[in-house]
């Protein structure tokens, strides 16, 4: 985890540090257990192909959780992830790079909190945003 980021350090348009993922089949099985989503298209190639897919695919909710990690790690110990989520627009294959990214779209104060809105997404090796979403993070202030 990086050093604590403060509200004053953030500007609209800033890109936050990205998070690189690449899901092994073992990670997809771990996620099945961790999330309780045991749908076989995520770990059984024969089953996945019987539904018309060419291979197993990464769970949409796992990519969403990656975006949760992206924001949690950026917010640091004194920050707080208040909202995050995404649409599952494109499929990602296992054993392929997933780049989790975020850009600050708005910063403001409300109810005594220093709030930052972000566009967040996962990107496949072709540069396609497979899970576009948004986040809301509260950050500490230096002052």
């Amino acid at each position: 985890m990086a050093d604590q980021v403060y509200f004053e350090d953030v500007s609209e348009g800033d890109e936050i540090p990205n998070l690189k993922k690449n899901c092994s089949t073992q990670q997809l099985v771990l996620w099945a257990a961790g999330s309780g989503d045991f749908y076989q298209i995520h770990y059984d190639k024969d089953f996945a192909q019987s539904t018309g897919l060419k291979d197993i695919i990464v769970h949409g909710a796992l990519k969403n959780a990656f975006l949760g990690q992206l924001l949690h790690d950026w917010a640091g110990a004194k920050g707080n992830v208040k909202k995050f989520g995404c649409d599952y627009r494109g499929m990602d294959d296992a054993k392929q790079d997933i780049d989790c990214r975020g850009v600050v779209t708005k910063k403001y104060q409300d109810g005594g909190e220093n709030l930052v809105e972000l566009d967040i997404w996962t990107e496949n090796p072709d540069g396609k945003k497979t899970t576009p979403g948004t986040g809301l993070v509260a950050l500490p202030a230096r002052a």
Binding site: M1, K21, Q27, L30, W31, A33, G34, S35, L62, A65, F66, G68, Q69, H72, D73
Partner: peptide, 14 residues
């Protein structure tokens, strides 16, 4: 156990 399993499956380091 549930928190740890979920965190581990995502790859959290905190």
């Amino acid at each position: 156990g549930g928190c740890r399993m979920f965190a581990r499956s995502v790859g959290h380091t905190d």
